[in-house]
């Protein structure tokens, strides 16, 4: 069986017990997704690359702490999330970054357009998302832009599943209020 046919969790077992080089397969699977997520928080490409590298190194170092009964995706996203937050805290004025495709997501999924007069720019949404409290912003970003389920968000952010729904709902309301100003 080739490495590409193994699940993430099976690959972790292989890396731990047999072949550390199998970790390369995990990097291949996740670098684009994690890079996409980090791009919300880090504008500079070189810096993003450094942070992404740190994420994979940290994940490797702590691989023995991963419970293979859980989803590897949620586990590595948590590490990425924490690194992204640490990076934001270093730069207090850092703003959330959305690309053009994600502006459409805002319109379709978060559904702000109908309630607000005039056109909202992606820039305004990004600024408003940055102003949102972290506890509301993070579930919104993970749900609408990274397409994570409530269960996955619960595992990434270490909050109850019901709370994820509540925070997303309240976050949307606060976002609309911020955009109305």
């Amino acid at each position: 069986m080739s490495l590409s046919e193994l699940s993430d969790e099976e690959l972790v077992v292989v890396v731990r017990e047999k072949d550390k080089e199998a970790y390369g397969e995990l990097i291949k699977r996740y670098q684009t997704k994690l890079s996409h997520y980090l791009r919300k928080f880090i504008n500079n490409s070189a810096e993003l690359e450094d942070v992404l590298q740190d994420v994979f190194i940290k994940a490797f170092r702590n691989l023995n702490s991963f419970d293979t009964e859980q989803k590897f995706s949620s586990w590595i996203f948590r590490i990425t999330h924490n690194e992204a937050i640490n990076n934001i805290k270093k730069r207090k004025n850092e703003r959330l970054l959305l690309d053009e495709n994600e502006w459409d997501v805002v319109d379709e999924k978060i559904d702000l357009g109908r309630e607000l007069d005039g056109k909202i720019t992606g820039e305004q949404v990004a600024v408003a998302l940055t102003k949102l409290k972290e506890k509301y912003r993070d579930p919104i970003v993970l749900f609408f832009f990274e397409e994570k389920t409530y269960e996955e968000i619960s595992d990434i952010l270490k909050i109850p599943v019901n709370t994820v729904g509540t925070f997303i709902s309240r976050g949307k309301k606060h976002l609309k209020d911020l955009l109305k100003k």
Partner: peptide
Amino acid sequence: IENKVMEEIKSGRVKL
């Protein structure tokens, strides 16, 4: 990125 990380692992600078 893949090369850099695997280089660190193979060289032993990064360990489990």
